[in-house]
Design a protein around this nucleic acid. Structure first.
Lengths: 243, 243
DNA sequence: ACCTGAACACCGTTCAAGT
DNA sequence: ACCTGAACACCGTTCAAGT
């Protein structure tokens, strides 16, 4: 009986690179970076650890693979009207990157770390630079803009990933609780931290609006880097021309 | 013969929490995140693995400890003249944080991640918020500014940490080399990436100026968040007053 | 062509003992 | 009070075999 043609409940489907990568991504999302091991991945697939090595060279290549699966989930910037719409395009691309990193927190430190970027990673960056170049940004400025925007998203995701609360209401409780655990000297030594905790306890901390505030601040700055013709809606220069 | 009073070359000094943490920090700097293990740390200290557990509860607490040693290396903002000098103070604090992260690349993903922040971490954040509050920023704005500035530094350090070159000249070589390895379809599929590689090959990539460009862009944006009285050099409001 | 078994050199950590 | 030894339940990966 060929297992490929049988209608069994398939806890034991035929192995392939895609099946291995999909299971690895799922495991990482559930258990985090530390929970992803070749051995537990193998048992989840109903197979002995060494069976994985026929589809993936080693753990490093496995991680390369799932990182590119994550890149594939990031929505590229809308390039339908590059000249006037670069700003909303960059804004929603940054938001999509942040959402993706929130879905896969283990990937934050890995997205830019891999030595051999996968095709989805390359396509994503090409689309981003293309959007900016066609909007009239010079080559140098395009590099600056991608650098500062991505740095902000990564850094924000890093901070967001590990703060011990998920919602604005929860943040108030956590803050108040933390403060009560501290000894009395704490208030005298760190008055401004006490202020933060107190105010956050009252008003809460909203990740979404915090992210948007910083993002818009940066986009305002980017706007100033654009050449002057942009404000009068002139056509973009030929690709690769201005420098 | 008491080893504490003997003048031996001290490969085997008396163990203490500080000695363990210092050796762990050194090991992490040399071997990276993955190279820091309780077992190799023990052998470097000339001791059996279990000896460490008298000075440190477990590996997690060890990492808490060395992360706070890293925080202690970040120069806090200069608070000598908060009203007019908040910008250079923030600028050089961000630069110091980046330099520190460059010295301890393994720490980038860990500085904000620890659940129990150490004293150096708390002091650093208190100094930062204090500098901004006394410069007249409202509480909410102070939170926004620290969020966006730190996010940028973390994200930049993350990108810098893993790019495969250290100097501007080297970046050109690496870029040219990478490009030559690619198949011919590459140029057609990712024209804007090819442009980056080509231009970088010609002009090089300077981390320092790239960092400064993004930092100044953000600081320009922060300037706009300041209350209007700041430009006429009025005194700051009483701490905790404005909201 | 694909999967398995046994083995090697590693981990962090517990527990019972040594001095 | 501080360090040790042996053990347990984990890792990634190699190599020689099975089907």
């Amino acid at each position: 009986m060929n297992p490929a043609t049988t209608g069994s409940p398939a806890p034991r489907q035929r192995l392939s690179r895609d099946v291995v990568l999909a299971a690895a991504l799922d495991l990482a999302d559930r258990e985090g970076d530390g929970g992803l091991s070749m051995r537990t991945l193998a048992t989840e697939l109903g197979v002995v650890p060494m069976a994985l090595y026929k589809h993936v060279a080693n753990k490093d290549e496995l991680i390369d693979g799932i990182v590119d699966l994550v890149w594939a989930q990031v929505e590229p910037p809308d390039t339908s009207d590059d000249v006037t719409h670069w700003r909303p395009a960059m804004r929603s691309r940054a938001a999509s990157l942040r959402r993706t990193l929130r879905r896969h927190p283990w990937a934050v430190g890995l997205l830019e770390t891999r030595m051999r970027p996968g095709p989805a990673n390359l396509a994503q960056h090409d689309a981003m630079m293309g959007c900016l170049r066609r909007a009239g940004f010079s080559f140098r400025t395009t590099v600056h803009v991608t650098s500062v925007l991505d740095a902000y998203v990564y850094g924000f995701a890093l901070q967001e990933q590990t703060l011990p609360f998920d919602t604005a209401e929860e943040s108030g409780d956590v803050a108040r609780q933390k403060l009560e655990q501290q000894p009395a000297e704490f208030a005298a030594a760190f008055p401004y931290l006490v202020e933060v905790v107190t105010e956050l306890g009252a008003a809460g901390y909203d990740y979404d609006s915090e992210f948007a505030t910083g993002l818009d601040l940066i986009l305002d700055g980017v706007e100033h880097l654009r050449p002057a013709w942009s404000t009068v809606d002139a056509p973009p220069p030929a690709a690769g021309a201005s420098r």
